[in-house]
Computed example of a mutant assay.
Amino acid sequence: MPRISEPITQQPQGKAVSQISTADNLFKPPQTIVIQPRKRLSVRDFTEMWQYRDLCWTLSIRDIQIRYKQTLLGAVWALLQPLATSGVATVVFGHFLGLASGSLADYFLQVFPAMIIWSLFSAIITATSNSLVSNAEMLRKVYFPRLIIPLSSAGAPLLDFLVASSVAIAFLTFTTQSISIHFLLIPLIVLSTLIAAFGIGLSLAALTVVYRDFRLVVPFMVQLLFFVTPVLYALPVTDKWLPYASLNPMFGPITTLRAILEGNPYSFTPWAISLSISATTLSFGIFVFTRIERKFADIV
């Protein structure tokens, strides 16, 4: 009987080519990715920071947990600190020094919101200036956009601000007879405060890595800024020192906030000057940060 041969099945040509290509790829050397520092901030850096947004969120949650871990009152401390400071300032400056133009209750309601804004400003500067040194191990071992660390360090101060500002809004709602449309400027005041704080904080964060003396300079500098900022007092609009005081990035926001709370007329000129100083400070802070960034892993 003749032998019947089995049919020969041919594979498609495309499949054979893909198998050969796969086999060739197995013997190719792995692609090498070289990470090089850049001299200036570009769109690519912002794209990378958006890609690493989960890391920023994780570091912020970590700082908040460390801040309030094993505490008795937890986030209530965010309210007690400006509340106690405002109360003492009302007695000392408002009563004994006679800075209160009206009643002590009105003076307290003017100082308390200004103290909350100032606490946000000083807390962000302190947290960002020490953030790189506190996360030195991450800088040495893992690659990620370095701006993530100072940005994530603002998570705890922002949470404190939200807790304290919610109580301040409740105070103003129940004690103020009429809320003006000018209160809508308060979010812009907060934004101006964040710009000023991050501008100063980024410069100090980079400089603290190189010169550890700045860890001692920061508390002293913040204390000096507090006394030259009208948190506890009001500077007249017609004062001759007004143009020079506006060079303080927090002078315009605090002055405008106090005028809104008191129902007094205010000028946008000091705020515009302070905002321009804040924007310049932020640009300078980013410049200093990116220039020193290439040395972080070596000297931190």
Rank of each mutant, 00 (worst) to 15 (best):
P150A: 00
Y68V: 01
L235D: 02
M49A: 06
S42N: 12
S103L: 07
A16Y: 05
I195R: 00
V190P: 00
S246Y: 08
P187R: 04
A89I: 12
I61W: 02
I124E: 02
R294G: 04
S103V: 09
D54P: 05
L147K: 01
D213I: 08
V288M: 05
G252V: 13
L26Y: 07
M138F: 10
E293H: 12
F183I: 09
G74P: 03
A89Q: 07
F144R: 07
L216S: 14
E293R: 14
I181V: 14
F144V: 08
V163A: 00
V43S: 02
L120V: 02
S119R: 13
T128N: 09
F121I: 07
F112D: 05
L247N: 12
I299F: 08
L97I: 13
M49F: 11
Q11I: 15
I189M: 05
S274L: 05
T128L: 09
D239E: 10
R53N: 01
S21M: 15
V222S: 03
A114M: 08
F284E: 00
L26V: 07
F174P: 09
T281R: 02
F296Q: 08
V217P: 08
L55E: 00
W50Y: 12
I179W: 15
Q177L: 09
S178W: 10
A154N: 04
A136V: 13
A164S: 11
V209R: 02
A156H: 06
Y211M: 07
A100T: 01
S246N: 04
A23Y: 07
A297W: 07
D239K: 04
A297P: 09
T176K: 13
V111M: 09
S274H: 02
M138K: 02
R258G: 10
L207R: 04
